[in-house]
Write a protein that binds this DNA or RNA. Structure first.
Lengths: 228, 228
DNA sequence: CGCTGTGAAAACCTTCACAGCC
DNA sequence: GGCTGTGAAGGTTTTCACAGCG
């Protein structure tokens, strides 16, 4: 067990401004909205109704308006939303005003895929370091970066100012690596490991488990067509 | 717009047995439970209480018991759950009694990572085909499979009996490719594209958007340490 | 008139607490 | 005594429906 629960140094602040206390379900949808607005902007749309944005984002219009209302009043009644203004507004809420720095740990197939992934730069993130434990990989050049040894994670994080770590390491060592990046000062972790990780309360963790996603698909399939 | 919403051919069946009508939130957690039980079994544990399983799965004991109760009564009061029996039970609910066949479309970095991913076989899935549109990739051998042209998706799905497609294709063509795999007869789609896809109601879609996950991390970071 | 912003209602999900069984 | 299975309570999320503004 690594992450100690503190309870004292992160007090609840009931006086926080509205714009920083959104329901979790709303936060999960903000990236969708930002993406929908980007699509609309590319199509040359400058003003869009909640119905139009919701259509592209794949949600209901009422849901979109309710979610946006937590960020304040940014639409014009009888007209809709200004696409550019609302984009800036969402980017601000997501803290994307300056590019966040990311390190990727585990330069196997998945790590390489992530290192070359255009979605980082397009969406407000910069890969600033790659780390691995395999001596055959350390020192090689991948996607424009020289891979560092994972033991140097503290130095790399300190030198680059990275605040987010993406873990693409084998399940067996994922907790150990997670502890190391957290000790190095990272504030957010995105893990692709199936095991569920423990982090201190002040660190944010999200997990993508591809096997679990497939099993959920299998469930729905099975529900409709049970095998003989 | 491709996937037409039907609304008539998939009537609600209120007479379905309990075991097949679980709350969606419960279904999303079943893979976690199955994984936790596998971990316990590897440790030689044969019987475990709801608290023990919940601890490994990272949920509350009450949540676990409530979720399992939808599958029927499988524990023994005063004792706990038989790990092996509960594993079989969950695997059955998830339709993993026989291995599900999967095709991967898009053999770039991510597709290769997925093709070599051990998590498939370990968790009830078999990769039966790889497809790509790039003539330089078609015909090459990746992870033991010869890559087929994506235009042959219908033949490949028919020949292999694949029921699930994993899409690791560029965002711009993701809807088009999705339509093709659905037309080929696939019943479940796992997409790694940022765009939200449209599928017919009888097809199940799940999306993993790495960029969105990072933006959600950025939000929480920003909430605690707003930039100057 | 059209569309946003938002209370109020409905649906859903989680947690509690305890009866019931081993 | 210990632990499961579950109704009931409490909380969150979604949907509705309409007041209010442009």
């Amino acid at each position: 067990m690594s992450g100690a629960v503190d309870g004292g140094s992160v007090p609840v602040r009931p006086d926080e401004p509205r714009s920083r206390r959104l329901p979790p379900a709303t936060v999960d949808r903000l990236p969708r909205y930002l993406r929908a607005l980007t699509v609309l902007a590319e199509q040359g749309v400058t003003t869009a109704s909640s119905a139009a944005v919701a259509e592209v984002a794949g949600v209901g219009p009422a849901q979109l308006r309710k979610d946006l209302s937590f960020l304040g009043s940014h639409g014009r009644r009888g007209v809709g939303y200004d696409v550019a203004h609302l984009s800036r507004c969402l980017a601000g809420a997501l803290g994307l005003t300056s590019s966040r720095r990311v390190v990727i740990v585990g330069i196997g197939h998945l790590g390489r895929a992530l290192a070359g992934f255009r979605g980082f730069d397009d969406r407000g993130f910069t890969v600033v370091g790659l780390l691995d434990a395999d001596p055959g990989v350390v020192g090689t050049r991948v996607a424009g970066h020289v891979v560092e040894h994972v033991d140097r994670v503290a130095e790399v994080v300190a030198a680059t100012g990275a605040t987010i770590a993406v873990l693409a390491v084998p399940t067996g060592v994922s907790q150990e690596v997670c502890d190391a990046v957290v000790a190095a000062g990272v504030r957010g972790v995105l893990s692709f490991s199936a095991r569920d990780l423990t982090v201190p309360t002040e660190v944010d963790l999200r997990t993508v488990d591809v096997g679990a996603e497939l099993q959920i698909l299998a469930f729905h399939e099975n529900r409709r067509q049970p095998p003989p």
